[in-house]
Simulated scan of single mutants.
Amino acid sequence: MREPLPITLEQLSDRYDVFLVDQFGVLRDDTGPYEGAIEALSRLATAGKMIVILSNSGRNGEYNSERLVKLGFAADSFDFFVTSGDVAYEVLSSPGSTLVRGSTCLTISSGGDRNLADRLGLVSMDHASEAQLIIISGSESERVAMDDYREMLRPAAEKHIPCVCTNPDIHKLHNGATLAGAGSIARLYEALGGTVTWFGKPHPEIYEHAVRIAGINDRRRVVCVGDSIEHDILGAKRSGFDSALVRTGILAENTDEQLAHLFNSVRADATFIMPAFRNLET
């Protein structure tokens, strides 16, 4: 695989007009913004760059936008906030969808989030055996063991109940530790024999959604910035975008050798690499 070139955010700004920026691991962690990220995002916006926050969040873009602003990011420092939850809603609520309003649903999430089920007019249930659809939008692996998730989902998998994963992230950040994310729970469901439909990075629908709402015509002028090789870098490559891997987030502690192994195993190389999403003087 081609070794990514070191680059600064200022140099990226000189090369590209559109930035598709990951949220968790690039702009913030589970406690708040990374040092310099607020200023860096505002400076890109002031320079006239189009900025789309592209997030594997099962919650909608409006919720995420408001949360980002509450953390101190300027509301005018990004143009759009695209989430995998929004893309899932768009697809599942389309005229061609076979999903029926009023169907029963079990949502695996964090913080009791049932936003997608509510928007789709589904009836939320507490047990997998009662569900006609499983939605996996988040993980609480800091308090729920994976074996518990396995037993929770086994009745649905045995009945071949379809599952939708609106957050493919295999890992998540929690209090400085890397834990199993919603994507790991969805993989577990597949291992039990269930079928999963995936929405979010690295799958193409979220990128095509961003292209459409942002009016992107020339993909050569777009760069994707992320902290995950499996999601951000692979997704960018599949969709024909250049990419920049930041050394914050889930791979912050990985050595260069470990990164090289990941690039090879995922079969996706980043165009560039940089220490963090911030300006040189911050």
Rank of each mutant, 00 (worst) to 15 (best):
A145W: 06
T178G: 02
E208I: 04
V222F: 11
Y207S: 07
E158P: 00
Y189I: 08
D118K: 14
G121Q: 06
V222P: 07
D218W: 08
N167K: 07
R119N: 07
F199I: 06
E158L: 15
S228G: 12
G111I: 08
V225N: 11
E158R: 13
V223N: 09
S184Q: 11
L106Q: 01
Q132C: 00
E230P: 01
T107G: 00
R154L: 12
N175S: 13
I161Y: 01
L173K: 05
G200A: 04
N175E: 13
A131P: 03
E158W: 01
G200R: 03
S139G: 03
A131D: 03
H160Q: 13
R154F: 02
A180S: 14
K159V: 02
D113N: 15
E208N: 13
E158Y: 02
E158T: 09
K159S: 13
L116V: 05
Y149G: 07
L106I: 01
L153K: 06
A210V: 10
E205H: 10
R119Q: 14
A210Q: 07
G121D: 05
E230F: 08
L153W: 01
T107N: 13
C163I: 01
M152L: 15
P155Q: 12
N217C: 11
A210H: 08
I134K: 00
G226Y: 06
T195N: 11
I134M: 01
Y149N: 08
S129F: 04
E230H: 14
S184P: 08
T178Q: 09
A177Q: 15
G215A: 11
T166A: 05
D118I: 12
L173Q: 11
V123K: 09
I229N: 06
A191T: 14
P168C: 09
E158A: 14
D227W: 13
D126C: 03
I216S: 11
D113S: 15
H127S: 12
P162Q: 11
S139R: 01
R221G: 05
A177N: 13
E140W: 02
R154W: 03
V222S: 11
V196A: 03
H174V: 12
H203R: 00
E140H: 02
